[in-house]
Simulated assay, not measured.
Amino acid sequence: MKPIGIIFLLIGAILFTIAGFTFYNQQQFLDKAHVASGRVIEVRKDRSSKGGRTFYPIVEFIDQQGKSIRFNSSFSSSPPAYEVGELVEVYYDYNNPYQAEIKGFFPQWLAVLISSTMGLIFSTIGIVILSISGRVKKKTKVAAEQWPQN
């Protein structure tokens, strides 16, 4: 049972590491990002991994150099979170304006939230398994010491 607990702890640590890197990268992007007003010009349908439909917005905005930029949001949802014509705020990289995302909690932090939550779940399961394994081993040792010797 102990190796299973260690495996869960390792998976939890890996997920926490991914959450940390994702958080750091997102924070670095936000620190240097410019904000612009954009408009949803289209909502495209796509197939989800579960076979259903998911919708992601295509947004157009004008960068600081006056260039019209269109990008596909990396965040999709079902039902659609945005409507054609809706005004949104956009974060974008000045040096690469096509690296852009709609300003909002889920587009910025969903990956961090999921990986850290999964890391917490796996780590907790690993700790519980190791704790139970340790108690069983301790009880077995105590019982063996109390067993009458001939």
Rank of each mutant, 00 (worst) to 15 (best):
E42I: 08
K45H: 13
Y56P: 02
V136R: 11
I62W: 01
T117G: 14
T22K: 03
L9C: 12
S74A: 10
N95D: 13
K138F: 09
V43N: 11
E60D: 13
E145C: 07
Q65F: 03
P107H: 00
P80S: 13
P107M: 03
G5K: 05
S116L: 09
F21A: 07
M1Y: 07
F71S: 05
Q146N: 13
V90G: 06
P3R: 01
S133N: 08
G5Q: 02
R53K: 14
V43F: 09
I62D: 01
I4P: 04
Q149I: 10
L130W: 06
G5V: 01
Y91D: 00
I58L: 13
F105P: 00
Q99C: 01
E86Y: 00
N25H: 13
S123F: 14
G66M: 10
D46G: 08
T22N: 00
N96K: 08
F105A: 04
V40H: 02
Q149R: 11
Q65K: 14
G52S: 15
V88S: 06
L130P: 00
A100W: 11
D93N: 10
L15H: 05
A36N: 12
P107L: 03
Q26N: 01
F122I: 03
S77L: 06
R70H: 06
I58T: 12
I129V: 09
L130E: 09
L9W: 02
Y82C: 07
V142L: 11
V35Y: 04
Y91G: 04
G12A: 10
P3N: 01
A144Q: 08
K2H: 12
Y98K: 14
A100H: 13
L110S: 06
K138Q: 14
L87R: 15
L15S: 05
I14M: 13
G66E: 13
R53F: 06
S78P: 08
I18P: 11
F55E: 01
I102Y: 02
I121V: 14
G85F: 12
H34D: 10
I6D: 03
S131A: 09
S76N: 09
I129H: 12
A19T: 01
I18S: 15
I69R: 05
S78I: 06
P79H: 08
S74Q: 11
G134V: 03
Y82G: 05
S37W: 13
S73G: 15
I102E: 05
M1I: 02
I121W: 04
I129K: 10
A13F: 14
I127A: 15
I69E: 07
A143T: 08
I14F: 12
V90I: 03
P79S: 00
I132S: 04
V90M: 01
R47H: 10
G104H: 07
A143I: 11
I14Q: 03
P80N: 09
I129A: 08
I127F: 15
G104S: 00
D93R: 02
I129C: 05
I129R: 07
G134D: 10
V59T: 08
P3Y: 03
T140A: 15
V112H: 00
I41N: 12
F61T: 12
K45Y: 04
V136W: 09
G20S: 14
S116H: 08
V88E: 08
V40S: 04
K32Y: 05
E145D: 11
D93S: 06
I18A: 15
R39V: 14
S76I: 09
G126M: 04
I14Y: 10
